[in-house]
Computed example of a mutant assay.
Amino acid sequence: MLRLHAGPWVADLAPEDGGGMTLLRHGDHAILVPAPEGARLGGPFGAFWMIPWANRLDGGRLGPHRLPINRVPEGTAIHGLSRDRAWDVAEAAPDHAVLVHSVNAAPYRYEARLATTLTTDRLTLDLTVTNRGAEPLAFGVGWHPWFVRPAGTRLAFRATHRCTHDARCLPVSAEPTPGLDGGEDVFLGLDTHFPGWDGTATIAWPELTLTMTATGALATNLQVYAPRDRAVLCVEPSSHLPDAPNRPDFARLGPMRVLAPGESLSGIITLSVEGSHRGGGAA
């Protein structure tokens, strides 16, 4: 574990566990559901990175390539390769850390660099992924946080489209939408993708309001997951539509990006918090 702190922020990173985050607090308030001691990241707690693709690939298909099926019941390759691999600590300070790792898992060869910085008013996650293979290849990235969801939680963001999904949560169509703005009546039960995200989302808890802002590759698409059986809310910035390589009819709403050898994909996520005057319990 690598602990960072600045002002009211505290974050625990797990370099050996996919470079993920096992704890994030602001003062006395949990932002992410804390990971149980000794538990591997993957949910429903903490946060992890999805590299070199986000969400699902049907049958693990990526053009002529076949990626390992790691969600066997539904026959999908889910959430990429990096979350199951250790990262190295390249830099470490009380409020800043840089994690790096290299992956060689055919057809992918890539390097990832993640800079995590805390200041008194925000958390910043700065990610760059570089194709180190000999051939051009499609890449994507995403971040999968498990935010707390106390009673009274509200979610708001703007997007241009909302996907419908089959029983395996693979998109089958996309309809225009202004986005979401509301409480559990709006988001509970979703495992839904929103293309055309404008890069900003707010989660309002009874005592705090969190603003998430993304730029670069992470600012185009958003996955929202709010299961009915546990008090969590996943609001996941990503660079592409789930299963985009196999959805030519509407992959334009979030294609994976083909990187030539040496090319990079990068994006930044910032989280900031303000107090709320709404009544209710603690976040």
Rank of each mutant, 00 (worst) to 15 (best):
V172S: 11
R3I: 13
L155F: 08
F48A: 05
L67G: 09
S239Q: 03
R162S: 10
S276W: 00
H240Q: 14
D121G: 10
G254S: 04
E16P: 01
A282E: 14
I69K: 08
D198Q: 12
E236D: 09
C234Q: 06
R162I: 12
L13T: 02
T200Q: 12
V103L: 12
P73C: 08
L155E: 10
F194Y: 15
H240L: 05
D181V: 06
P44Y: 08
N104R: 13
N104E: 15
V172A: 10
M212V: 07
N104W: 10
G216E: 02
G140V: 05
G18C: 09
D243P: 06
T164P: 00
T209M: 11
A231T: 10
R278K: 11
A219M: 08
G59E: 05
A219Q: 09
L188E: 15
I269D: 03
F194P: 01
A93F: 10
E184S: 11
P34Y: 04
P15W: 07
L114S: 10
R257W: 00
A14E: 15
A92V: 12
M212T: 09
W87T: 00
G7Q: 09
T116F: 10
W49Q: 12
C163I: 08
E274V: 13
S276P: 01
P15Y: 07
L180P: 06
P242V: 05
L13R: 02
E74P: 00
T160C: 04
Y108E: 04
G196N: 05
T119P: 07
T124H: 01
E236T: 07
H96D: 14
R109Q: 14
A219S: 15
R154Y: 02
H96G: 10
G27R: 03
A260T: 08
V141A: 14
V235F: 06
